[in-house]
Simulated scan of single mutants.
Amino acid sequence: MTTIDRQVVGYLKDAHALQQHVQAALSEMLTTAANEPEMCGPLGHYAERSRSHTRAIEERLRAHGAGPSIVRDAGMLFAAVAEGGLGRSRRDPVGKHMRDAYVAVHLQIAAGEMLRRVAERAGDLETVRAAAAMCDDAQLMSRALSDRWDLAVDMSLRQHGVTDVPPPPNAS
């Protein structure tokens, strides 16, 4: 295996571990937003797409004669579970889960961009396609989350019993 192929495999392993984290963050957000169809719809669709990306990454790892990094995956899952457990005890789980989902999606974009660019240089077009699809979906999810910040604030306020709040200043 060449040095650049090892780099591709390393970025594939990183992307796989991050996918595990993203899936856990999405699960927490879906649980928190279970009664909000406007939030659950895009999150549910993205969770499906994220599972598809995980399978594609696993296929690319196999094509390179490698597998996911148990250590990286375990670390990401541990972090996600710890965050989720803390989320249940937080005073504002909706706001924190929204923030965490937004950050996770942007980490996914960064990991996908690095993977795509290294795979391009290695001439691995299948990995380029898998990474580009992951980035495209993460960009769409980033916009969907950005469009729902006010909804997250409303959900958070309702969670704390605040019901008499005026709409956001820019709402028409």
Rank of each mutant, 00 (worst) to 15 (best):
D92R: 03
A56T: 01
N35P: 01
S27I: 00
G41Y: 08
A25K: 03
R143F: 14
L145Q: 04
L61G: 07
H45E: 13
C40Y: 02
S142W: 02
V162M: 10
D164A: 13
A101V: 02
R121A: 15
T32V: 14
L140S: 12
A101E: 01
T54C: 05
F78Q: 08
V71G: 07
V128N: 03
D154C: 07
D154Y: 11
G112T: 04
R158D: 13
G44W: 02
E36R: 07
E113H: 06
G85F: 08
I57L: 08
E28K: 05
T163P: 01
M155I: 06
E36A: 13
A131I: 06
A17K: 01
G41Q: 12
E113R: 08
H21R: 08
G41T: 13
G65D: 09
A119T: 10
H16V: 02
M1C: 12
L77I: 07
C135S: 09
E58G: 11
D100T: 11
A24P: 05
Q20E: 12
M1S: 15
A66G: 06
V8M: 01
T127S: 11
E83H: 10
Q20P: 00
D136M: 02
H53C: 04
P168W: 08
V105S: 15
R51I: 03
D164H: 12
V118F: 02
M134C: 15
I70T: 14
L43M: 09
M39A: 15
T3P: 04
L43I: 06
P169F: 14
L86Y: 13
I57T: 04
G161Q: 06
H160D: 11
L26V: 03
A63S: 14
A82G: 11
T31K: 06
T3Y: 04
V103M: 11
T54M: 10
A104W: 01
A80K: 00
M98P: 00
A122F: 06
P68N: 08
Q108A: 13
I70N: 10
P168D: 14
D147F: 09
Q159F: 14
L157N: 11
L157R: 10
A171V: 11
A17F: 02
Q159K: 10
L125R: 11
E38A: 14
L145Y: 07
A25Y: 06
